[in-house]
């Protein structure tokens, strides 16, 4: 199993700053995927708060999996999302993003077994003004002997 000390080295890792602009077509399609009502304004669906910040800092899911030493793509689970929205996201605005990995914690779940809970925080700004702050926890399932950890 990947030593927890190795995972702890990720704490404080800063993502390269970048930007993301939500296009109408992707807002339409993402809203369709959620079975929501079709957009009648330029407001973007809130679920973009999962995708846009990561895309803005230039990370694909595969790169996140690699960064966090995922054992496989299907050994990754959602843990918690905390989305603070100071202003609703809109299509066509170039949002700037910066963020980091806040913490990494090794835990033992009754069903999942050992996993690493990795907390990401990314802020989106528009002309220097904070628009949204997302704090998402991803779970990276681990296999093999579990030398220690905290029950989830």
């Amino acid at each position: 199993m990947i030593p927890v000390e190795q995972m702890k080295l990720l704490e404080g890792y800063r993502f390269p700053p970048g930007f993301y602009k939500i296009e109408h077509w992707e807002n339409y399609l993402l809203t369709e995927a959620t079975a929501g009502k079709k957009p009648s304004s330029t407001y973007a669906h809130p679920s973009f708060l999962f995708h846009a910040p990561l895309a803005a800092v230039g990370l694909t899911y595969q790169e996140i999996f690699d960064l966090c030493l995922a054992e496989s793509a299907d050994a990754v689970r959602a843990g918690e999302y905390d989305w603070e929205i100071l202003r609703p996201l809109e299509e066509g605005i170039k949002y700037h993003a910066q963020g980091q990995i806040l913490s990494v914690e090794r835990k033992i779940g009754r069903q999942a077994g050992a996993f690493d809970a990795v907390v990401f925080q990314i802020e989106l700004t528009d002309v220097g003004e904070l628009v949204a702050r997302i704090t998402n926890t991803w779970l990276f399932l681990r296999t093999g002997p579990t030398p220690g950890g905290q029950s989830s």
């Binding site: 959620t34 009502k37 957009p39 809130p46 995708h51 843990g79 918690e80």
Partner: peptide, 28 residues
């Protein structure tokens, strides 16, 4: 996961409008 959260967002949007959500905190 973002689709599951999206269902919650859809409920809130239908209730109070597309620009109404100030914070959404969920645990899977």
């Amino acid at each position: 996961g973002p689709l599951n959260v999206g269902y919650i967002a859809n409920m809130l949007i239908d209730w109070t409008g597309p620009a109404s959500i100030k914070r959404l905190k969920v645990r899977f």
